[in-house]
């Protein structure tokens, strides 16, 4: 098992290095002169000189890359061009909002989506399944920012239940979390349903029935466990998606999180801020996927046993079992 974890960690490092490289060269793919863009159209010559010195675009990319990575390792993403504060400070103060938003949304989406998908699958060929599946299709086809605006119109402006924007109290979180979760819940439901339908047709399900097992245990033990294993991966990647989704959601609800910071950075062409937040969010998202992958290997015996060294198993008769 340790071998597997080490192997995954070793794969993780080059990916992060690669992402750092992409993040670094973002500035090089900008059309036009980045220095002029960044300094602003009416910048004084000394400002331009200062920006140029900060960017050090004249130096070879390898050198810049090396410097960027060593600084990043020290937790230094440079200073924002806009507010002159260290980017890392801003990221760290803003990240808790985004983390809370993304985490709760994903958890919420699993809580809604998984039971819905299983319910639909176990009621196949009935109107219940058709309704559920059509509802989830509509929800995944909806732009999430539009749904957010509709919710604001109804619950904040219309009924006055929740604040329109900003984070003042816990009710402020309801709409952002819900509007972000709805689409994910629908896609989890769709995947859970199709996994479940596939698994229900497997031979080992027939075997379980032929043993005399009750339909409830067949569905909720034999089928559900098998159907959930691939879902774990999806849920892992949803965390990454939720970090991306937070960009717009935070913008709509004026949540002072990392997403809003990124968008502000993008609009102001604030390179250190962009580079810092993209790299930071990517590392978070990759780490979550890594953790999920490792958890996955613990859960699925087919993967686990590839990495467990065959040890002589002496099981006592009647010992702690299965």
């Amino acid at each position: 098992m340790l071998r597997y974890i080490v192997k995954r960690l070793l794969l993780f490092i080059p990916i992060i290095l690669g992402i750092s490289f992409i993040v670094l060269i973002l500035i090089d793919i900008t059309p036009g002169d980045p220095v002029a863009i960044m300094a602003g159209w009416d910048a004084k010559p000394e400002v331009i000189a200062q920006v140029a010195a900060d960017l050090r675009l004249d130096r070879p990319i390898v050198v810049r890359y090396f410097e960027f990575v060593t600084n990043a390792l020290k937790g230094d993403f440079g200073k924002s061009f806009r507010n002159k504060r260290p980017v890392m400070t801003d990221i760290l103060s803003r990240f808790p909002y985004t983390a809370l938003l993304a985490f709760v949304s994903v958890v919420l989406s699993v809580l809604i989506g998984l039971p819905l998908g299983i319910y639909a699958a176990t009621h196949q060929y009935s109107w219940k399944d058709n309704t559920a599946i059509f509802a989830t299709l509509i929800l995944v086809s909806m732009p999430s920012f539009w749904l957010a605006l509709l919710l604001v119109r109804v619950f904040s402006l219309g009924l006055g239940i929740t604040p329109v924007s900003g984070i003042q109290k816990w009710t402020s979180w309801i709409l952002p979390m819900f509007s972000l979760a709805v689409g994910y819940a629908a896609s989890i439901a769709r995947q859970a349903r199709s996994n479940m339908l596939q698994v229900i047709r497997e031979d080992y399900i027939v075997t379980a029935r032929a043993k005399g097992q009750s339909e409830r245990v067949v569905i909720y033990r034999h089928a559900l466990k098998n159907a959930c294993i691939p879902l774990i991966m999806t849920i892992g990647s949803l965390f990454g998606m939720a970090l991306g989704g937070a960009l717009v959601t935070e913008q709509i609800f004026s949540i002072p999180g990392l997403g809003q910071y990124t968008i502000t950075g993008l609009i102001n062409v604030d390179y250190p801020a962009i580079q810092g937040s993209v790299l930071f969010m990517s590392i978070i998202s990759c780490s979550i996927i890594l953790l999920i992958d490792i958890a996955f290997a613990f859960i699925d015996p087919r993967i686990r046993s590839q990495y467990i060294r065959k040890k002589v198993k002496a099981i006592q008769v009647g010992g702690e079992g299965a």
């Binding site: 080059p14 990916i15 992060i16 690669g18 992402i19 490289f21 992409i22 990454g240 998606m241 970090l243 991306g244 989704g245 960009l247 990124t262 968008i263 993008l266 993209v278 969010m281 990517s282 998202s285 990759c286």
Partner: peptide, 12 residues
Amino acid sequence: IYQGIPMFLLTV
């Protein structure tokens, strides 16, 4: 590496 960046973040 590409997919390590959250997709929508990359697009934006």
